[in-house]
Structure formats: C-alpha cells, structure tokens
Design a protein around this nucleic acid. Structure first.
Lengths: 189, 189
DNA sequence: AAAAAACGTTGACATAGAACAACATTCAAT
DNA sequence: ATTGAATGTTGTTCTATGTCAACGTTTTTT
C-alpha cells in the first residue's frame, strides 16, 4: 500500500525506515473511479495527494463553460490544488481523476507538521516547489511565441506521457489550441 | 544599506536582530547602470539578488533574435535566474537591470547555508518558492484562452506596477503580443 | 544642443488558427 | 453485443493579431 511512497521518500531523503513508516502513517488511502472530482471550484484545498495508480487532472472552466486543463499528474507524483492548499483560498479550479485511481491522502495539517518536524521531509516539499516552479516556468517560456506545431513538439519533448495518457481534447485545452488544430497538427509530425 | 532587507526579514520571521545582522553580513552590494547584464545566456547562476532600488528583467532571445521577457522584479524583491540557480545548469536566459539599481547579492553557497542553518530563513525561501510557483501558475492560467485585451486587463489587475515601470516593448514581449497590438489595445481601455 | 538611435503609433495587408458543422470513430454502460 | 454519448477528423469560413512600413516622438550619446 505504501510501497511506492516509501520508495519515493527513500530515494529523496536519508530518513530511517522507522521515520518513513511514521510519515506514511499520516496518509490514508482512497480508490476513485474515472472522472471523480476531488476538489471543487470553490473548495478550499485541505489535502495533498500521492498517486499510487492512475492520473489526476487539474482544470478550470471559464465563464463561457469552456474547460482548460492546467496540469496532469501520474503515478508516483504528488498533486494538489497547490495555490489553494498554500493560501487557503477557494481553489477556483477542479481536481479530478481521469482514470480509476489509487490515491494516498495526507491532510494539510499533517503535511505541514511533517514539513516542520522532519527537515528531510521539508526538503521533499522544497523539491516539489522547486520542480513545480521550474515546470511552470518551462511551460510559460516553452509556449511563448510558439505556434501550434511547435507547442505539440515541445510537449512530446518535455512531457511525452501526456499525449499517450490523456484525450486529444484535454491535451488541446492544456496546450491552448483547439482540438481540431491538434488533430491537424498531429498529422504533420 | 541593509535597512530594507532587515525590514523584509523582520516582517517574515521571528529572528532576533543579531541573527538578522549575521544573515545580512552574507550580502554584498552592487550599484548597476541601466541595462546592465547580471547573468548571461550560458552562465550558471551563482547569486541571488535582493533589489534595494531599481528593477530587474529576466528575458531570453530566440533563434530569430526576438526578445521575450519572462519576469520583472522591483524594490524589496528577491530575484535570480532560479532554474539555473537551483539546478546549476546554463541559465539559457538573461538577467538584466532595466533601471540604475542598488542590489544586494548573496552567493548560492551562502544562501543555501543560511537556508539549512536557520529554519526561519528556510521559511523565507519556501515562501519565495511558493509565491513564485503561484505567480507562475496565475500567469499561465490567466493567459490561457485570453485575447490581447483580456491579457492587458489581467496585467493591470495583477501586476499594476509593470505597465508603469517598463517599456511597451518589454510589456508586450511579456504578454506574448506585438507592440503594435499592445498600443492598439491600450486605446480601448 | 544636435544627431542618432530606440521606441511608440497607425494603416494596409497577410495568415494561423478558431468556430462551426457534418461525419466517422471510439468508448462505456447496460 | 447494442446503443447512446463522447471524442476525433476534416472542410469551409471568418477573425484576431502578426508583419511590415511610414511617420512621429522620446531618449541617449556625444
């Protein structure tokens, strides 16, 4: 149950097995169906999720009812509506499993307690933030001035899983292009 | 000289004056002219900058020689080419003062030493990362599916300083629109 | 103060990609 | 296995915005 999380923590820290067990003890499990909503638009995010199996999408819906996908997370990744988790403001976005998934869940309180208790766990959080920051940066900069074809090529380079695991529609809304354009571009590759 | 930095740290931590003095002792000062390059494209970023006075732009130049602006920082903000600072890879971007500026500089080594020595300083770094992450997110999501007018309105809402402090050209390259379009859009506001 | 360079504005034109629609295909639930 | 719904594809049309160029204005340099 905690096998993958233990591996994850072991790889990233020097914590002892007993500490890792203690940390894992703060997580509960949840099995979800496909397309199950974990966080709603006006929810204040209270949990951090670790994906044992499955995939999570972060997306929002604009006033015209159009969905835009913000982020996708897969196995062995931590994922949540981080701005809301940090600031405790309404998420203004949805968190949704897009495949039947096995999740490990830790509450915000427990998470920050661990961060403040174990400097090694703090390092994990720091790494998540650093990585999240870099990923977000790359995405901004990768897309700046790119046309549709270049965006798709960038995606294949930088997140090759994504096009294989999610629908064209979702990928298109992640790239900020229309599904038709994505369809046309794919033929040119 | 360290007045603003001391205020900054005092506001964000519970550190004693003596600790704050010790921390400030790791910073050196630098006065720069307008348009002075702090970090070059292939540099590995070794320093963190705190802006006492002035403004810094993070930008890159694509293969066609076109500049795109990535980030602007002003007084009382920390700023660097963070991905390179974190990973010690070539920056692939430039850091440049866009006004005559007074900077405080701390080396990466000293910075991480402080982060690992003072849990309170670690919190500052964590806040920088959290804030950087949220800002980057907001920028991605704020721009997704926005037309030129909406982008400018977003900018006025979220970073009102920016349009006042930087040239149209730089603002346009930050928004991912052409200077002509920005000029036209501004008339409609 | 003069000259040069950079920047901002505006018009005319070109174009990538959105929108819409029709049809084909795949998926998912019973 | 069958059926209905969601997704993917492709053609046509339309629009926002880029590009280019000309001109005016501001800034920088000498």
């Amino acid at each position: 149950m905690f096998r993958d999380l233990k591996t994850y923590i072991t790889q990233k820290t020097n914590l002892q097995a007993s500490d890792i067990d203690f940390i894992c003890g703060h997580f509960t499990t949840q099995k979800t169906k496909r397309n199950q909503i974990l966080i709603n638009y006006y929810d204040i995010c209270e949990d951090y999720y670790f994906i044992n199996k499955g995939a999570i999408r972060l997306f929002t819906v604009n006033k015209e009812g159009l969905e835009t996908s913000r982020y996708f997370a897969f196995e062995n990744m931590f994922c949540t509506a981080l701005p809301s988790f940090i600031d405790q403001q309404p998420a203004l976005e949805y968190l949704q499993t897009i495949e039947a998934s096995d999740l490990l869940i830790i509450s915000r309180n427990d998470f920050y307690t661990l961060v403040n208790t174990y400097s090694e766990f703090d390092k994990i959080y720091r790494e998540i933030l650093e990585l999240g920051f870099i990923t977000a940066q790359k995405r901004i900069y990768g897309f700046q001035g790119f046309d549709a074809l270049e965006k798709v090529q960038w995606l294949i380079q930088n997140q090759p899983n994504l096009l294989l695991r999610v629908s064209n529609k979702m990928a298109a809304s992640y790239l900020g292009i229309s599904p038709s354009t994505l369809s046309r571009v794919k033929k040119k590759l």
